[in-house]
């Protein structure tokens, strides 16, 4: 954090200021009290490691078909069973988790960069620039963006890079609004005036002083964007418009499972349970972080 008053709580009984508790320590203390959020954090860490080390952990290659074990129920050799082509479902879920999580991270990063830049420029310069930039955001807001992602995927081909970009490119709107609002409320504070006074350029003021002070809300929104993008990728892959076979994401595994559920129900149950758990944990952590980082936003 830079100059923005790191809140100095933790006064001793005599009223003498002891070592201040930074915003982050304070948030961590609050988050630790929230058992569900901590549990979610652990679960996400586990999923992350599983996805990261999918190549080492997976007992079989993800696209290896074996006609001797088509449609086997979960058992010792195949933890989650096998699919209708004789592929090991546990392996496929691991790789699917990897794809889903990386789409979530990369697309969120794309949306973060666009949203923060857009919002901070609009908020900092204000006036006509702000008006034009935010009306543009308003217009995009009223578009049915999932349809546009589908159109982009249709026109530019269904590959994973386009998927990253397209999903990120439609998710930055709320981010830009949040950042703009924060910047507007910060830009007349004394430390910004001081920065002006010592002759800093707008670029430096935005990067060094304004953006770092909007980190709290940005982080909260990012943790809530990741599950949304994972969900949207799964949605597209479910429709057959996302990740293309033989690659798999949690969404396409769900689609395969839905098609085969009357014969091989485990093909549906495992991927959908993993996806639901992942989304549930991410949403819970996001809510917990919001409560921890910005207690004012807590409701009810």
């Amino acid at each position: 954090m830079s100059e923005a008053s790191a809140p100095a709580f933790g006064k001793s009984e005599k009223g003498v200021l002891e070592k201040g508790v930074s915003l982050w320590e304070d948030a961590w203390i609050r988050l630790k009290k929230n058992r569900m959020a901590l549990f979610s954090l652990g679960l996400i860490a586990l999923f992350f490691l599983l996805a990261l080390f999918a190549g080492v952990l997976a007992p079989y290659p993800f696209d290896a078909t074996d006609y001797t074990v088509i449609g086997q129920a979960p058992g010792l050799h195949h933890l989650f069973g096998t699919d209708d082509l004789g592929r090991d479902l546990f392996t496929r879920v691991l790789y699917g988790l990897r794809i889903s999580m990386s789409v979530g991270l990369v697309a969120t990063a794309v949306s973060l960069v666009i949203g923060v830049l857009w919002g901070s420029i609009a908020g900092y310069f204000g006036g006509a620039v702000d008006y034009a930039m935010m009306r543009f955001v308003d217009i995009l807001y009223s578009l049915p963006y999932m349809f546009f992602v589908i159109i982009l995927m249709t026109i530019f081909g269904r590959n994973i890079i386009i998927l990253f970009l397209a999903l990120g490119a439609v998710q930055w709107l709320t981010m830009s609004r949040i950042v703009r609002g924060q910047i507007l409320s910060l830009k007349h504070k004394e430390f910004i005036e001081a920065a002006h006074a010592i002759g800093l350029k707008p670029r430096a003021i935005i990067w060094r002083h304004l953006i770092p002070n909007t980190m709290g809300p940005i982080i909260v929104y990012v943790t809530l964007t990741i599950p949304r993008i994972i969900l949207e990728e799964a949605f597209l892959s479910f429709l057959g418009l996302g990740v293309q076979p033989p690659m798999a994401s949690l969404g396409s595994l769900n689609a395969d499972g839905a098609a085969a559920m009357d014969i091989y129900p485990w093909m549906l149950i495992f991927p959908s349970a993993i996806l639901a758990l992942l989304l549930f944990a991410l949403n819970y952590l996001g809510d917990g972080l919001r409560d921890a980082l910005d207690p004012r936003m807590r409701k009810g």
Partner: peptide, 22 residues
């Protein structure tokens, strides 16, 4: 409410089909 928001429709739909349909 949290459950309803976290379970996507493409998970819920097939599960409902499996349970109430099949």
């Amino acid at each position: 409410a949290i459950l309803g928001v976290s379970i996507p429709d493409f998970v819920l739909g097939p599960l409902l089909q499996l349970l109430f349909g099949i």
